[in-house]
Design a protein around this nucleic acid. Structure first.
Lengths: 251, 251
DNA sequence: ACAAAAGTGTTTTGGGTACACCCATGT
DNA sequence: ACATGGGTGTACCCAAAACACTTTTGT
């Protein structure tokens, strides 16, 4: 049996040795911005440390990086067809060796001591995530209270958050985190959660009312004990047709 | 003699097999935006094709990606301490195989058929480049007339140009392309070259006069056959102290 | 009736944009 | 004297920001 024959039979496809993808998965739930972190038990010096890291994985030989990111997302949340976006590459030759116990933990999991990682971020609506498909060691942490993460993952998170905020002002990303039909107040609260601020309701509405791709539906909220709000939906086609270079989503 | 002993003696350090850096080196000369491209002679089917590509290189085992980019810049232009910035990763598994003759050419130069490349861009003032240190096969091409490049390099160039324009509106990058002391008209012409447009002189000046880190010097142009212009310099420290999240360089 | 969120207009302020003439220098 | 680019001010319009009350529903 040749080596290539053996390779074909191996279930886990071959991965590239010195490159990986790490994902910052942002979630939105109860007007709060969350981030998915994974718990790991790290044995070191006869102790076991409870640590947290971002989900990540190796890149398979025949996949694009965004496919790696989509795969990580599926593994962690069960969701498919989710928006993912690369934001920065982290290439410090010592990035895995900043704390000895982290490196001891990761050593048997990598093929080369040098691993360059490409950071991706992703947006999911937490209510779409079936808690049974969320892997057991995953946890939705408050984005404003991220604890110490392993390796350079705090840095990766910080860069992802910066990029998320920038992109939200320049692309219609918010609709990845909103339900199909949403109220303007829901949209406003989402921006407030991500930018950690508050906006004036009237000014906010004046601004978003200029967006032709925000479609007011002939439908209102039901089951709320106050005046029901009008529902809106996002029309991607209108956005694609009418977008201009300089447009931004700032309010 | 052990393998590791041999490795120590090899002059060219070991490089990572599946990752490379490609550089889009922007230059500015005579109010024109240029890009450095390399000429390659590509033998294929008993013919020799003259082709062009972006400069690139493998990543050494102990260097950060930005060090790889700086090394490429030094090799191509002789310049050191130049601004470089990563902008996007290109990971199409077939990116080297889009044209058969390109792949035949590159095959003996790579360690693995799959190479993911990280795009960096860089800014140099072409008059700083000694033509004797510019490598022979390099050429400053007009950024608006880029010919067919090898592999996915047209795509890499397009993305670099997009990112350059974005960054120029949000960071004080222009000063990387301007001489130490410059006139406001020189600065305006630079933006006009990069954005391929023209601006109103009075409005442009009103805008840049609000930038506290643009220092008017007690010095004017000499040797020009018209009213000599005032010279300005850029004060990085003032910029760092006074920059705000939302500021932009749009005019 | 009350609680809770929806929905709506006006004023002020500052920035963007459009536009034309005189000035200082070298030849 | 002339050619060349340097340098300046004003008017209009629109967007940003600050600000408070009425409406509709469920309980």
């Amino acid at each position: 049996m040749t080596v290539s024959k053996i390779k074909e039979l191996v279930i886990i496809p071959e991965t590239l040795p010195t490159i990986s993808v790490d994902c910052v998965i942002f979630g939105y739930e109860e007007n709060k911005l969350k981030v998915l972190v994974r718990r790991e038990f790290v044995p070191f010096n006869d102790e076991v440390f409870l640590e947290w890291k971002l989900p990540g994985n190796h890149v398979r030989r025949n996949e694009e990086l965004c496919e790696t990111a989509a795969r990580i997302l599926k593994e962690q949340t069960g969701l498919e067809n989710i928006f993912v976006k690369q934001f920065l590459v982290f290439s410090d030759p010592n990035r895995l060796k900043r704390r000895e116990r982290d490196y001891e933990w990761v050593k048997p999991r990598i093929q080369d001591e040098r691993v360059i990682t490409v950071g991706f971020y992703s947006l999911v609506n937490v209510i779409d995530v079936d808690n049974s498909t969320l892997v057991e060691d995953a946890n939705w942490a408050n984005a404003y209270e991220i604890k110490d993460l392993m390796f350079d993952h705090n840095e990766i998170f910080d860069e992802a958050f910066k990029k998320l905020r920038y992109d939200l002002l320049h692309e219609p990303l918010a609709f990845e985190l909103l339900p199909e039909k949403f109220t303007l107040t829901q949209m406003q609260k989402l921006y407030e959660a991500i930018f950690n601020t508050t906006y004036d309701k009237r000014n906010y509405r004046r601004k978003v009312n200029k967006m032709s791709y925000l479609i007011p539906l002939d439908e209102i909220q039901t089951g709320v004990s106050h005046k029901p709000a009008r529902l809106y939906s996002y029309d991607r086609e209108i956005y694609e047709k009418t977008r201009t270079e300089r447009f931004d989503f700032r309010v």
